[in-house]
Computed example of a mutant assay.
Amino acid sequence: MDIGSIDFQINLLKKIFDLIRIVDPINNKVISVTCNKSIDKIHNKNCYNFWNHNQMCKNCISLKAYNEKETLIKFEHLGDKTYLVMATPIVDDDSTYVVESIKDITDSKIISDSQNIDLVLLYKGVENINKLAFTDELTGAYNRRYINEKLPKDILKSQKNSTPLSLVMMDIDCFKNINDNYNHAVGDYVLKETIKIISKNIRLNSDWIARYGGEEFIIVFKNANIDIAYMLAERIRNAIQNYEFIYNNIKIQVTASFGISSISKKISTKDLLLNDADKYLYHAKINGRNRVEK
């Protein structure tokens, strides 16, 4: 990358921000660092290490900027410091990178004017704001934005490490009938309980679940080939089928259908993986529902 090609933009940002980083958000790599003041840990191999994270930030603003091709802003905290972070995508030849502009605002007027501010509450507020960006409000599962940002990185990591990765697309059977026969409050209850069931049947530090849309969810199983994913999906299917869904003394029978896909030479991107899983979910539906297809 020709760093000199963007020197002008960097010099403008240096007048406002304390730290400027050019990062490759797909590979979590720091390409270049420019610093106006003493900030610890500025030269890190992995961009997320600056925030004392051992893995990708859940609310990765740079990946959002990369994917959405627009400048985005968030607040972050590290120890007793609060930072303003701005991420701006840049194109160099055929490659896209992100300029991260970071400013320490701990002692800024916006904070110092609030004499009675509780920093613990401030930090919790920052965390909550960041969490809302990638969380489905109703179910607490991850949302579509998280899928678009996290799934490509998980695929890339699996390909680099030559480890398997499987994706399950799941749909609650006849969910429209639940809403029509009862009401949307019952439907919301079923969605939230279903997520609880799934969460108890996945590896919390490895697998993840996101709401794809409506009553449809995806589950990503890391280090799991298609046979292992099938076994895990069957366990979830049985758990949903045998669970007592009871809302205000109303007992609702709930089942779900599942389609599974795994990364391979032919299925190597987010869209191909999702489309393949969706194809098998369709097979599960037309073959009688309440089943897993791969």
Rank of each mutant, 00 (worst) to 15 (best):
I73A: 06
P89C: 06
A87C: 15
Y66L: 11
S62Q: 06
K81Q: 13
I73S: 04
E70V: 02
T82P: 01
S95W: 00
T82S: 15
N67E: 12
S62Y: 10
M86D: 01
Y66A: 11
Y66V: 07
H77T: 07
F75A: 05
I61W: 00
Y66K: 14
V85C: 09
L63R: 09
L78F: 13
D94Y: 09
A87Q: 08
I90E: 01
F75M: 08
M86T: 12
E76S: 07
L78E: 10
I73P: 01
S62I: 03
K64D: 02
L78G: 03
Y97A: 10
P89A: 06
Y83H: 06
I73L: 10
S62H: 05
K81N: 14
F75P: 01
D94R: 10
D80A: 02
I61R: 01
V91C: 06
Y97R: 01
I73R: 06
K64G: 03
E70R: 15
L84R: 14
E68Y: 11
V91Q: 12
T82G: 04
Y97T: 05
D93H: 15
H77R: 08
L63W: 04
D94A: 09
D80T: 05
N67C: 08
I73M: 02
S62M: 11
V85Q: 01
T82F: 07
T88S: 11
K69I: 12
T96P: 00
G79I: 00
G79D: 13
P89T: 06
I61N: 09
S62E: 13
V85L: 08
T96E: 13
E70Y: 03
T71D: 01
L72A: 01
A65R: 00
E76M: 13
L63Q: 12
K69D: 13
T71I: 10
S62T: 14
V91H: 04
K64S: 08
F75L: 12
K81L: 12
I90W: 03
E68W: 04
L72T: 03
Y83N: 09
E68R: 15
K64M: 07
F75C: 06
I61G: 09
D80Q: 05
T82H: 10
G79C: 09
P89D: 09
E68H: 11
K74A: 13
I90G: 06
A87L: 08
K74E: 10
P89Y: 02
A65N: 03
T71E: 11
D80G: 14
S62L: 09
D94M: 06
I73N: 07
T96I: 11
G79R: 05
E70P: 00
E70K: 15
A65E: 05
T71K: 07
K81D: 10
A87S: 15
T82M: 08
S95K: 11
A87V: 07
E76V: 14
F75R: 03
D92K: 12
T71H: 01
T71S: 14
V85I: 14
T82L: 14
V85F: 00
T71L: 02
I61A: 05
I73W: 00
L63F: 12
A87F: 06
D92C: 13
Y83K: 03
L63H: 05
L78M: 11
P89H: 02
L84F: 03
